Computed example of a mutant assay.
Amino acid sequence: MTEDVRRVFRMDNEVLAFRFTATVSDRTSRTPRERLTDAARLKMWLGATGLDVTDVSPTDLIDAVELREAIYRIGSAIAAGEQPESKDVRTLNTIAAAGHAKAALEHERAGWHLTQTTPVSDALGVLATDAIRILGGPDRGRIKNCEGPGCAGLFLDTSRGANRRWCSMNTCGNKVKKSRITAS
Rank of each mutant, 00 (worst) to 15 (best):
L127F: 02
K87H: 13
T91N: 06
K175L: 15
M11G: 01
L46K: 00
A79R: 04
L154G: 02
R35H: 14
C151A: 01
P138A: 14
W166H: 00
I71N: 01
G50N: 10
A39M: 06
E106G: 09
T94W: 03
S25W: 05
V5H: 03
P149K: 12
A40N: 12
K144S: 11
F20A: 04
T115E: 01
V176F: 12
W45C: 04
M1R: 08
T59K: 14
N93E: 09
K43V: 04
T117G: 05
N170T: 14
N170A: 15
D130G: 06
P32D: 06
R68W: 01
P149F: 09
T115Q: 00
G148Q: 07
T21A: 08
P32V: 00
D130P: 01
R133Q: 13
L135R: 06
N93R: 10
D38Y: 05
A104N: 11
V8E: 11
I74A: 04
S121A: 15
R30Q: 13
G75L: 09
A123L: 09
T171D: 08
E14H: 13
E82H: 09
T94K: 12
K87S: 15
V89T: 13
G136T: 09
A110W: 15
P149M: 08
I181Y: 15
P119M: 03
D157L: 01
A17I: 06
N13A: 13
N93Q: 03
Q83S: 14
I181T: 15
T23D: 06
K178V: 15
I78T: 14
L114C: 08
T158G: 11
R164D: 01
D139P: 01
T2F: 07
A70V: 10
V126T: 06
S184C: 08
G137I: 03
A80T: 11
K177M: 10
V176T: 15
V15I: 15
P32L: 03
T49Y: 04
M44K: 11
F9D: 03
T54S: 15
G173A: 07
C151R: 02
G141N: 15
G136E: 11
A39Y: 07
A103W: 08
R180F: 12
R109E: 15
A101Q: 00
A162Y: 10
A152M: 07
E108M: 13
A77C: 05
G50H: 06
N163P: 02
T21F: 02
V120C: 12
F9M: 05
A101K: 03
C172H: 04
I132C: 08
K102S: 12
L135F: 04
D26I: 02
H100T: 14
F155E: 00
A79N: 10
M11Y: 07
I132L: 13
I134H: 09
L16P: 06
M44V: 11
K178W: 11
G81P: 04
K178G: 12
A98H: 07
H100P: 03
T37P: 05
K175H: 12
C151P: 02
T54W: 09
D122I: 00
C151G: 08
R109V: 13
T21V: 04
E147G: 14
E106M: 12
A110D: 09
R30F: 10
F155T: 05
V8D: 02
S29M: 10
L46V: 02
A22P: 06
F9R: 01
V176W: 07
T91C: 10
A48Y: 00
I71C: 07
Q83N: 12
E106C: 10
A70R: 03
R142G: 04
D139Q: 09
R10I: 08
E85W: 09
T118Y: 08
G161L: 11
K87C: 08
